[in-house]
Design a protein around this nucleic acid. Sequence first.
DNA 1: CGTACCTTTGACGGCTGTCAAAGGAAGTGG
DNA 2: CCACTTCCTTTGACAGCCGTCAAAGGTACG
Lengths: 251, 251
Amino acid sequence: MNREESSILANLGRYYSLGDDDRELLLDLEQKSYAASDKETLWRAGARVDKLYTIKSGWACTFRHNFDGLRQVVDILLPGDIIGLRDFTFKRHLSEARMITRGTVCAFPYHKIIDIIETSTPLTIALFSSIARQEAILTERMLNTIHRSARSRIAHFVLETYTRLNKVRATELENFFLPISQQMLGEILGISYVHINRSLMAMERDNLLKKHRRHIEVIDQAKLFEEADFDDEYLSDDLNGLREYLKLSVS
Amino acid sequence: MNREESSILANLGRYYSLGDDDRELLLDLEQKSYAASDKETLWRAGARVDKLYTIKSGWACTFRHNFDGLRQVVDILLPGDIIGLRDFTFKRHLSEARMITRGTVCAFPYHKIIDIIETSTPLTIALFSSIARQEAILTERMLNTIHRSARSRIAHFVLETYTRLNKVRATELENFFLPISQQMLGEILGISYVHINRSLMAMERDNLLKKHRRHIEVIDQAKLFEEADFDDEYLSDDLNGLREYLKLSVS
DNA sequence: CGTACCTTTGACGGCTGTCAAAGGAAGTGG
DNA sequence: CCACTTCCTTTGACAGCCGTCAAAGGTACG
């Protein structure tokens, strides 16, 4: 099984090693894979929730429109993530889902999540963990949005995304793939793209980092961590002894 | 069974009617009830996750401290809510939990959540719904925080809290219990209490609402909805046909 | 090689934070 | 029942981060 086919296993399996039955349940979600193009819309806000997606490769996001036409990105989704996990108990999607890059995604009926809940306690806990970590990302972003400067928020986002990427595949902080335009960075962090640019320029002048179109160079890692006040606890894979409680084999 | 004893049933049962087994599982969480005083701390940030709580009566919140000593309230928890549901897959609590008013809470070991997951698919879905709606509240607050004025954010919070309260017990919008100080309102919305006060004063002058110490009068409901741009879809109890999928009885 | 998207820079204004201080309200202990 | 303390509310002055508007230069892609 190559890397591309195992993203969802790698993601939900990182909390503990999965049994064969669980692996099959997950792979069942990826029966029909599909090549999605850059900026392709997967669903629109207000649409009935029917299909969800797993990401085999590529990046996606969900966002909402404001009354004034601005967009606010809610989450960034990486290979192995399930798009719309937070939506499956809702009748309608609250936000729009769209690819950030081209990639391979797999659509599956939302009620397959229920099959998982009925069949596998470990996988259900993995789903809970996944949703809880997504919520933690949101919480963290809210804290940053409220209390930190634009510059600090950018630093935090870079480190967060690096940390998440590094859980999917080995990633070098000093230079990694980050296909996020300055405009989108603004839509994620809630900062105007003009001010994003001002901040990035300043960070470059200060020899902190340099953002290129599709990747980023981190020049002074220590300083970046300091400015971001970054603590990765909220992304931790540590399952609080649930492994032992479930008497599962540990990899 | 009086109202106070049934908060958790009312809360998790509002997605669909619960069977007797499910009711027992939930009531089992509330074996040991406990009278908590005003401002009592239930756990601190960084503490090991072991017990969670249900709220029978009273209000609670979770919050985090910033590097500069400021507090940011993450969620407001009402009767029937489970405090720490988002934490049970983490080893340590990311935030502190504390009572806002005095009330009755019930501590239970966190792994009872796993027992529920193992035993009851409907209840597990109810837990997912609960966590998803908490996350939706956060998302909504982030959107407001980023794109709306202080005044609009306050209006939104008032309507959100009213809507949530109204799901627990009948509540009159024109005058309801809201035991939130201006200081805490600031800590929830990420606004300095000085500016909260300025905004409340202005809203009072404009005959929109009047905030008292422990309750609030809404004078012009239509205008409040308009200023808040409030749409309660994100709090919806509608479970997207999961009822039918599960072939459960509908109340 | 034209078109759409992204980046960069300057000018200006406003919402909101911070600082400071004073006046209520509520609870506590004597 | 009164002094005292603590928390909460209110108001004024001032500054600054960041949004908006505007315009020009780069880059990619069909």
